[in-house]
């Protein structure tokens, strides 16, 4: 039976070694539907490795990642066959890359980029695909007149918003985000964050967002996980961890943020 009391994603004892070097070690958590989890830490803390493991991009050395499929069954994502895994990734999951070029087809029009997932799951009506694509461009605040332009002609912020639309068009329940605002101008960041915040709340998305920016974590996430040297050193309610950090490293992170 599906109830909100069952997690959408469970990670248990996730460890990833690169030879003798530790990527991340013994990470466990539950993620529930509609919950936004921020993973924060500096470069090399293991947060990106963890995201790769969670999103089937990097098989863990030890540990399991289970996901509650749309039929309610919990499945170990590394025991799905490849067809199931790929279907999951382009329907029920999304992945927003820091570099939009990794998540978009730069030579394909904006409409084609958004429509690709629909066509991948069998949509064969041009008019409907286009109408859905236009609807999504509107929701991510891209001028509808740009629907036939390729993202290589877009600004960084527009590309990122297009990448988000491309991911959300199949109404996924879980979206992974890797520094989605990294590399953008501050004013562009603010707009994107605001858009993301609205979409996440409206669609009830579960999100695992990796960021080194505590302001991003505060604005978007319910819960936070602080990583250092491959380990989770502190976890809890976002405002609690940021306003009352317990671990020395977390206190250092929080105190290092410029106040404006």
């Amino acid at each position: 039976m599906i109830t909100d009391d069952q997690p959408l994603l469970t990670a248990r004892g996730i460890t990833k070694m690169y030879g003798r070097h530790v990527g991340c070690t013994d990470v466990s958590f539950d993620l529930f539907a509609g919950e936004v989890l921020a993973v924060v830490g500096e470069s090399g803390s293991g947060k990106s490795t963890l995201l790769s493991v969670l999103s089937t991009r990097l098989e863990p050395t030890a540990g399991t990642v289970c996901y509650r499929m749309r039929d309610g069954e919990m499945r170990d994502i590394y025991r799905l066959n490849e067809a199931e895994r790929r279907l999951l990734m382009r329907t029920d999951w999304g992945f927003v890359h820091q570099d939009a070029r990794e998540g978009l087809r730069m030579g394909i029009s904006a409409g084609g980029n958004v429509g690709e997932r629909l066509m991948a799951i069998g949509s064969r009506h041009y008019g409907e695909i286009r109408a859905t694509a236009l609807d999504w461009l509107g929701r991510v605040e891209i001028d509808l007149a740009r629907v036939d332009d390729a993202p290589k002609t877009f600004s960084g912020g527009m590309r990122q918003r297009l990448q988000i639309a491309r991911n959300l068009v199949t109404q996924p329940r879980l979206v992974y985000m890797d520094e989605p605002t990294g590399g953008l101008d501050v004013s562009v960041q603010a707009r994107l964050l605001d858009l993301l915040r609205g979409l996440v709340a409206d669609l009830g998305l579960a999100v695992v967002i990796v960021t080194h920016d505590l302001a991003v974590a505060r604005l978007l996430s319910h819960r936070i996980m602080v990583m250092r040297a491959g380990r989770v050193i502190e976890t809890g309610l976002t405002d609690q961890v940021l306003d009352d950090p317990r671990e020395p490293y977390t206190q250092l992170l929080v105190s290092s943020v410029l106040q404006v």
Binding site: G112, G115, E116, I121, R124, Y126
Partner: peptide, 13 residues
């Protein structure tokens, strides 16, 4: 699906 993306691009253009 990708092949249909190509055809979609044709119609769009």
């Amino acid at each position: 699906g990708l092949m249909h993306v190509k055809l979609y691009e044709d119609i769009a253009k």
